[in-house]
């Protein structure tokens, strides 16, 4: 009787162990299958990813709120400390801006009159959707971020994402309640740009570092360090004229750009619904 009981227990144990090992093998197989399907850009993987991020975003939004509050408080303290100086700067800027406002009004009237004379087809006006960045902007390998808004808010794939300082990236995936931005610094990022003063067209390529570089420049280009880079509007994803960054260094054929936007300190962004 005792032997029979011991044998049953031993069999049960080995069954459990067998199940345990089989589950590990199954999980490894599932992991490899997911990796292979990711490599093949399988649409099912994209759907699975967006479904997971749709579920994770509400939790991440809650988890992000204490850090957002700390960040906002830090900025508020910094602003309070510089209030006097900032007030003086703003007063001077306001005087300057009032002059520009007068000029702009005159030019606007002139522009309307000239456009009506030439029968110019008006460009479509962009609409903006504000969203909150909830995830950290990637690790050592990937430079992307998650937004707390998706298809339900009008955010779609390939829309440009900007902050108050300039271009941040573009939407690469959009679920119902979440969207992923590919940042300018990511190795997969390609943005058609133009230099503001010398009008040199090129492509801004991410390098997984803080400074992306310019590619496909002409051999006799006249680009200088400090020159502003803006979007060229080619390709139809990014509207023309969004500030991108400044040329930070020129070494042989490598021209690097310091983007205007620091993604890590950005909390809110605008997604541009652009139709050209």
């Amino acid at each position: 009787m005792a032997i029979k009981k011991a044998r049953t227990t031993s069999l049960l144990l080995s069954d459990k162990q067998w199940l345990h090992r089989a589950s590990i093998v199954m999980l490894i197989t599932a992991g490899i299958a997911l990796l292979v399907m990711s490599k093949a850009n399988n649409p099912a993987i994209t759907r699975l990813r967006t479904q997971i991020t749709d579920l994770a975003v509400p939790l991440l939004s809650i988890a992000a709120s204490p850090m957002d509050s700390i960040h906002s408080s830090g900025m508020w303290i910094g602003e309070m400390a510089n209030l006097r100086d900032e007030n003086l700067t703003l007063k001077n800027a306001n005087i300057e801006l009032l002059k520009w406002q007068e000029k702009a009004k005159t030019m606007e009237t002139e522009n309307i009159a000239l456009r009506s004379l030439l029968n110019v087809v008006p460009a479509n006006k962009n609409t903006y959707i504000t969203a909150h960045i909830v995830s950290d902007v990637g690790g050592p390998y990937m430079h992307s971020a998650l937004l707390s808004g998706g298809n339900n808010n009008g955010i779609k794939k390939d829309q440009a994402v900007i902050s108050e300082n300039g271009l941040l990236g573009r939407v690469v995936d959009a679920g119902d309640n979440s969207a992923r931005i590919l940042l300018l610094s990511d190795i997969n990022s390609r943005v058609p740009v133009i230099t503001e003063s010398t009008h040199e067209k090129s492509i801004l390529i991410g390098t997984n570092t803080e400074t992306p570089s310019l590619a496909y420049l002409t051999a006799d280009n006249k680009i200088k360090v400090g020159e502003r880079i803006i979007t060229s509007g080619d390709g139809g994803i990014f509207p023309k004229g969004i500030p991108v960054g400044v040329v930070s260094s020129i070494e042989k054929n490598n021209v690097t750009v310091q983007p205007f936007v620091d993604a890590t300190s950005t909390q809110y962004v605008s997604v541009i619904d652009y139709s050209f």
């Binding site: 599932a30 490899i32 299958a33 990796l35 990711s38 993987i45 995830s135 992307s144 998650l146």
Partner: peptide, 12 residues
Amino acid sequence: SVMGLPLGLTSL
């Protein structure tokens, strides 16, 4: 999913 890495990489 959240970090945008190939799905299955961190799991493995």
